[in-house]
Amino acid sequence: MAAEDESVVPTMADVARLAGVSASTVSYALTGARPISAATRERIQHAMDDLGYTPNAFARGLKSKRSRLIALLFPRGGRDLGLSTFEYILGASDHAQELGYHLLLWTTEAEALDELARLAGQGLVDGALLMEVRLRDRRLAVLRKAGLPFAMIGRTADPGTLDFADTDFDQCARLAVDHLAGLGHRRLGFVNLDASAIAAGRGNAIRLRDGVLRAAAASQVQITTLTCESSIGGGRGALAELLARDAAATAVIAFNEQAVPGIMSAATDRGLRIPADFSVLSIDMPAQAALMTTPTMTTVGPTAAVMGRAATAMLIERVEGGTSGATQMLFDGELVLRESTGPASDHDTA
């Protein structure tokens, strides 16, 4: 076994080079995120032993130029965090720790560019993960100027050579609309995030809205789109607005986890039984939240924690110099059937 040079801290990229694999393969071998052959796993283990590499190298990182801290940039906007947001964060944090890094949650607003520049320029963090990504996100220019590596959970309008993990919103929209159309629903509502998210250019809200409109046109169903405050009261108001605009609507697709209980309670107050008279489907609602609604919520979406882990792996691979080209991943959604969707009621006369 080679003697370890205490002045040089081996990296995951060093292990990858010695083992003759990519840094992402080393990451997968360490985390079990993807199947790795026994022979490849053995080569990686031998390389780690030879280099003296350990994924839990936070203390040893003090000898290097790295802090082994990464910042997760989540502009909270004064709102409460939904369970789906926590799943992204926990997935990212867990994987960072598995790779010997720790996650710093940075909730400063996206417009606070001077504060971000100070964070990026102080050498306190090795890289940044961006959430709530806008189609034109000014944070990117700040991070580029500071030379700080970053990856995105989400993506800009033209991500080019940027690293990102994002939901395939067109695919999710088709799954949701096709499911409801297949049940005979011809008049749908789409309850999005609040109007400020659209005005700010939030990529997820805009991409999903546009995807739902395309899917509705392809399935020849009518759809009414609304923005909604992320609260129970917002959901109640959204259901009232939907039925005021289209009294014959029999189903709603919601991209607003915190508004869903309000949508459901408002429907019940109007004498609409879910799903006998009215169906509700939620996009990007984690299983834990879906199982807490009554009836339980039919959902479409990928697993947020898996996306958080993927983006973290991209970032750390970038920090450790193990990649040159962009790593870009779109995650398909899965339709999980529960109790909140059913065949269209007789009053759908379209």
Rank of each mutant, 00 (worst) to 15 (best):
V280M: 06
I36Y: 01
L208G: 02
I232K: 09
T299C: 05
E320Q: 06
E320N: 04
A266L: 07
L188R: 03
I36Q: 00
P302C: 06
A290N: 05
A39M: 11
Q122A: 14
L143C: 11
P302M: 00
A110R: 08
A310V: 00
G211E: 07
T161K: 04
S265P: 00
F331Y: 14
E257Y: 08
V191K: 04
A311W: 00
L135Y: 05
G321M: 08
N192H: 05
P159Y: 03
P275D: 05
G78I: 08
I232M: 09
R270W: 06
F86A: 02
A304L: 00
P295C: 06
F190A: 08
A276F: 07
M307V: 06
P343W: 10
V125E: 09
D348Y: 10
P149D: 15
R214Y: 04
S196N: 03
A249L: 08
G78S: 07
V252T: 10
L175K: 04
G237R: 10
A240Q: 14
L140W: 07
R209Q: 15
A112M: 11
F169T: 06
A305I: 01
A33T: 07
A238Q: 06
F74S: 01
R270C: 09
A266G: 12
V280P: 07
D94Y: 08
A33N: 06
M297T: 09
T31N: 05
N204G: 03
D284A: 13
L175E: 09
V280Q: 03
D210I: 02
P343H: 11
V336S: 15
L129S: 08
T54D: 14
A350V: 15
D14I: 10
A197G: 03
D158I: 14
L104C: 10
G271Q: 10
A310S: 09
G182N: 10
D94K: 15
L105P: 01
H347Q: 13
A311N: 02
S265G: 03
G342E: 13
L135F: 12
I206N: 03
L72K: 00
L208V: 06
A13E: 03
S7T: 14
M152L: 13
R174P: 01
S64F: 04
T327R: 15
C172Y: 00
A197Y: 07
A287M: 10
Q258K: 14
I70L: 14
I198V: 15
I283D: 00
G123P: 14
S37E: 08
A120M: 10
R136M: 11
A290C: 05
E6Q: 11
G184N: 10
G160A: 12
L226V: 07
D178V: 06
G182V: 13
R138W: 03
V221N: 12
G52N: 10
S24P: 01
A200Q: 15
Q258Y: 04
G82F: 03
R309P: 00
R66K: 12
M292G: 04
T156F: 09
A146N: 11
E98F: 02
S22I: 04
A251S: 11
E4R: 14
E317W: 01
A59M: 13
S27V: 11
S279E: 08
G77L: 06
G321N: 09
L239Y: 05
R236Q: 15
I223C: 15
A197L: 05
R209H: 11
L175D: 02
A195E: 15
M48P: 10
A240M: 04
A71S: 13
